[in-house]
């Protein structure tokens, strides 16, 4: 495994080094150096205060979605599952919407806006509810988990439609924008706020990578090989759910990264989850960071406009066709 992760590491490193220099304003090394020299150069300030946190959040978000997707596809033994399949986005969107629609709920918490905080609450509540439904005497039913998640997502969608129908039209713009997903944070505070929850979530997933190899052989075979299936399922669900909730609350729904990247990694590197999970994180991070570079510079390249596209549009428009190609090009999953 060790050496086969290196290409992914190099790619990620390259993307992380290049991405901060791309954007609507030209910023060069000289700007950075004079800013660090203490002259308050505005270009350097944009780079340090906006571009770098944005790149970091993009990388973490993309990496998280891909890692959770890879883990969930094994947990649910289903190649079509992605982090959002569990209805987390629906719950988060409903929470964000409530924060917009009812000013009484608009209480910013720490560095998080009320929208971000309520999205986090919504996502967490969704996960709690489906976990409650799926708990059974002999452990966790992944079937129930999946069905309850999808159903709850639909219920949240209905609730959002109802709120949309009865609420103030100009608030619709805000929720619409949220639903497109985006990584437009300013500064490091939001990032720092979710890290204490995000990192343990990611850690739980990575720590269970060896066990997931066995889960892929079925619960009985995994148990026979010495895996405590119930413990692994619970850990992966909790870890993946927590990580997704954190990411969704900041960047909204960003589709396809969590679905496609794991497929691409398995296709390139085989099926050992000890490689697939970290590689998915790296490739997902690199992919979303690159997509965000395009999202924030496309209009400038085309029309010299400083307008930014929501990155969710790029990932869906580029990711969708890519996924179909992957699907057609060979036997699915294997």
């Amino acid at each position: 495994m060790n050496s086969r992760i290196i290409p992914y590491l190099l790619l990620s490193l390259a993307v992380l080094l290049i991405a901060p220099w791309i954007g609507t304003e030209h910023i060069g090394l000289d700007h950075l150096l004079s800013y660090l020299g203490g002259d308050g150069n505005p270009g350097g300030s944009v780079l340090i205060g906006q571009r770098i946190p944005r790149v970091l959040l993009g990388f973490l978000a993309g990496g998280t979605l891909a890692l959770v997707g890879a883990s969930f596809q094994v947990l649910f033994r289903n190649p079509l599952v992605e982090p959002y399949t569990l209805g987390v986005t629906g719950g988060a969107a409903l929470g964000a919407y409530l924060a917009i629609a009812f000013p009484a709920l608009s209480v910013p918490v720490g560095p998080l806006s009320s929208m971000q905080f309520m999205a986090m609450v919504g996502a967490g509540a969704t996960l709690g509810i489906i976990y409650f439904f799926a708990r059974q005497q002999q452990g966790l039913s992944t079937h129930t988990l999946l069905l309850a998640g999808v159903t709850l997502g639909i219920v949240c969608g209905g609730a959002i439609m109802l709120l949309t129908y009865i609420s103030d039209p100009h608030k619709l713009l805000q929720i619409n924008r949220w639903l497109m997903g985006g990584i437009d944070v300013v500064g490091y505070k939001e990032l720092a706020t979710i890290l204490p929850f995000l990192l343990p979530g990611l850690g739980l997933l990575l720590a269970n990578a060896p066990e997931l190899n066995h889960i892929a052989l079925g619960e009985e075979m995994a148990t026979g090989h010495g895996v405590d299936v119930n413990r692994v399922q619970t850990a992966v669900f909790v870890g993946g759910g927590l990580a997704t909730a954190m990411v969704v609350s900041l960047v909204g729904p960003i589709g396809f990264v969590g679905l496609i990247v794991p497929h691409a990694v398995r296709r390139m590197s085989g099926f050992d989850q000890r490689l697939v999970l970290p590689a998915s994180f790296l490739l997902g991070g690199a992919a979303l960071t690159a997509a965000d570079c395009v999202a924030r510079s496309l209009f400038m390249w085309l029309w010299h406009s400083t307008t930014e596209l929501p990155v969710g549009i790029i990932t869906a428009l580029v990711g969708g066709p890519l996924f179909i190609r992957l699907l057609l090009s060979r036997k699915f999953m294997t």
Partner: peptide, 26 residues
Amino acid sequence: ERREVAKRLGYLPQEIAAQFDFRVEE
């Protein structure tokens, strides 16, 4: 502990549907 059980007891289920296309050696 399941791991301790597995050191002493091997179980081959009737039906096994592997999700991934592992190689034999793997």
